[in-house]
């Protein structure tokens, strides 16, 4: 076969265009289900905090872990070069953990692999992320944004303890 005559070009075009619209629309529908059905959300707007006065802010006065309800924990976390405070978090298995976090200097990141905790820590912004920790074990908390010469040493640990 040489080349197709132009009259069939338009048919082939149409045969491609329709699925090319259907595929992205289908994927968007799937995303909508996970976001609004399953409630897997992204960081939103949680307000500002002056990076020079983080220690005076009610949320970040005492970085640490607070139990807010049975099975519910709040981690109030600050990031600065090159450490998280607190850098070790202990919660019992089956807990839902809410992270409230910010940076005191440059941009840092908060990544807990495989737990849907992935949020940027920008100076000036309050970040929020949440996840459930069901399986006992130690999980790294990693700064995943380049923050200077010792960036690769900036990490903490979540220790999920088996229920007694």
């Amino acid at each position: 076969m040489a080349t197709r005559p132009p009259s069939t070009v338009h048919l082939w075009e149409l045969a491609w265009i329709l699925p090319s619209i259907a595929i992205p629309v289908g994927m968007l529908a799937a995303l909508a289900v996970t976001a609004f059905g399953a409630g897997i959300n992204l960081a939103g707007d949680q307000g500002r905090v002056d990076p020079a006065k983080v220690a005076e802010h009610a949320l970040f006065k005492e970085p640490g872990v607070v139990q807010t309800a049975p099975g519910q924990y709040e981690v109030r976390l600050t990031a600065q070069i090159w450490a998280f405070a607190p850098n070790e978090i202990r919660v019992p298995a089956g807990s839902t953990v809410h992270f409230w976090a910010t940076s005191k200097d440059v941009i840092h990141g908060l990544l807990v692999p495989r737990h849907n905790i992935n949020v940027m820590l920008l100076p000036g912004q309050i970040a929020h992320a949440q996840a459930r920790f069901d399986t006992p074990g130690e999980y790294p908390i990693i700064c995943h944004e380049y923050c200077g010469i010792a960036h690769h040493t900036m990490a903490g640990t979540i220790v999920v303890e088996a229920k007694p």
């Binding site: 968007l28 960081a43 939103g44 707007d45 949680q46 992935n118 940027m120 920008l122 912004q125 970040a127």
Partner: peptide
């Protein structure tokens, strides 16, 4: 900037669409 704080989810969704 999906993981940036300070931007409402609505804007993220619109840019995603």
């Amino acid at each position: 900037q999906y993981t940036d704080p300070g931007i409402h989810q609505g804007w993220k969704l619109l840019h995603g669409l």
